[in-house]
């Protein structure tokens, strides 16, 4: 890795850890920062012996470890996955409008979740809700379908991919709307799931999506030089030695699974996968080797920050997190656009 990459990653990780501590402390029961840090450290082997753990209140421990931390960690992972797959989709399509939902992940997940909520509402499999499982299957199924529609003679037609993504997404949305009219008493549940939220995060959620997202993040990181060259266009990338078709297909599959994993536990949270990559591109430049890790961690930071605000400002009521991501993200993005005064694309 580049020294510059390491520098940015370390800075972002420090911000992220500080935010984890802060977010663990605040909530309906506010804890002091000192106590929060102490509680968090008390589970880290090695360091825990250095502090006096006797002052930790079991109640606070429970609040932090059973309620807040799983939600914090899930929101970080979801943010990383959405932003990371956003970088990949924008890179593959060479299109600034691309986001993780562009090839049907969101519509498929919403459709799957709707089915799950209606027909298997209370069933849990390995303590994972049926809604999440159905959402994941819906997302992967839809992506797979769209991917196959647009694969002509072993080559992916980007235009067909985008068009069939839009078409299939609106078909699924119509079906969901129809179900919502037909089952009005489930309307709120479906609606809130679609709006996205992390209130139902659990350690199980975290432990299931973590390996998926981490493994995919690591594998796809080795394809970032290829994405750089592919920004010259497929034909030119071919001439420079890139197996464009193969790499496109690998990355499409990896990014879709990653996005589906995030969506299955968080619902459809907009904006992060679209604009976090853009923000980082303005700040650090277009080189995917640096952009990918930094934009991913930033996605985690943005979602954690948004979720913390979402659950605290109107406490005990929760604001859907998607609203917060837009309210804090969009003005910042517009500020950067004006300030940079140069072509982003």
């Amino acid at each position: 890795m580049h020294i510059r990459t390491v520098k940015y990653v370390i800075i972002l990780l420090i911000i992220l850890i500080a935010l984890v501590v802060l977010s663990s402390a605040i909530g309906s029961a506010n804890l002091s920062l000192k106590l929060t840090i102490k509680t968090l450290i008390s589970v880290i082997p090695g360091i825990r012996n250095l502090i006096n753990t006797s002052s930790i209140n079991p109640q606070d421990f429970k609040v932090i470890f059973d309620i807040r931390l799983p939600r914090i960690l899930v929101s970080i992972l979801a943010g990383i996955a959405l932003s990371g797959s956003g970088v990949i989709f924008q890179g593959i399509f060479r299109n600034p409008m691309a986001d993780p939902y562009i090839i049907g992940v969101s519509a498929g997940a919403a459709f799957g979740a709707t089915i799950g909520l209606l027909f298997a509402g209370n069933i849990k499999i390995i303590s994972l809700s049926a809604t999440s499982i159905f959402a994941f299957l819906g997302a992967i199924g839809t992506t797979f379908l769209i991917y196959n529609i647009s694969k002509i003679k072993g080559k992916i037609s980007v235009l067909t991919l985008l068009l069939s993504g839009v078409a299939l997404s609106s078909l699924l949305s119509s079906i969901i709307s129809f179900i919502m009219i037909y089952r009005t008493h489930d309307l709120a549940k479906i609606y809130f799931w679609i709006m996205g939220g992390l209130a139902n995060s659990s350690w199980t959620n975290f432990l299931i999506i973590m390996p998926v997202i981490i493994i995919i993040m690591i594998i796809s990181a080795f394809f970032m030089r290829d994405l750089n060259v592919m920004s010259l266009g497929d034909e030119r990338a071919n001439q420079l030695g890139v197996q464009t078709e193969k790499i496109k297909q690998i990355l499409l599959i990896l990014a879709s699974i990653m996005a589906a994993a995030a969506v299955s536990v968080s619902g459809i949270i907009g904006f992060i996968g679209l604009i976090t990559p853009h923000i980082m591109r303005i700040i650090i430049g277009p080189d995917h080797k640096i952009l990918y890790p930094t934009a991913s961690i930033s996605g985690g930071i943005v979602l954690l920050l948004s979720d913390t605000i979402a659950r605290t400002v109107l406490s005990p009521r929760e604001i859907p997190v998607g609203i917060i991501t837009s309210i804090i993200g969009v003005p910042f993005f517009i500020y950067l656009l004006i300030k940079s005064k140069r072509q982003v694309f």
Binding site: G91, R94, N95, N228, M230, S231, L232, G233, E235, R236, Q239, R281, G285, P286, D287, R342, Q343, V344, F345
Partner: peptide
């Protein structure tokens, strides 16, 4: 190696 007629860059590299 091929020198193409023209090349556009999707992202603005140096």
């Amino acid at each position: 190696a091929v020198v193409p007629q023209n090349t556009s860059l999707g992202f603005n590299f140096s």
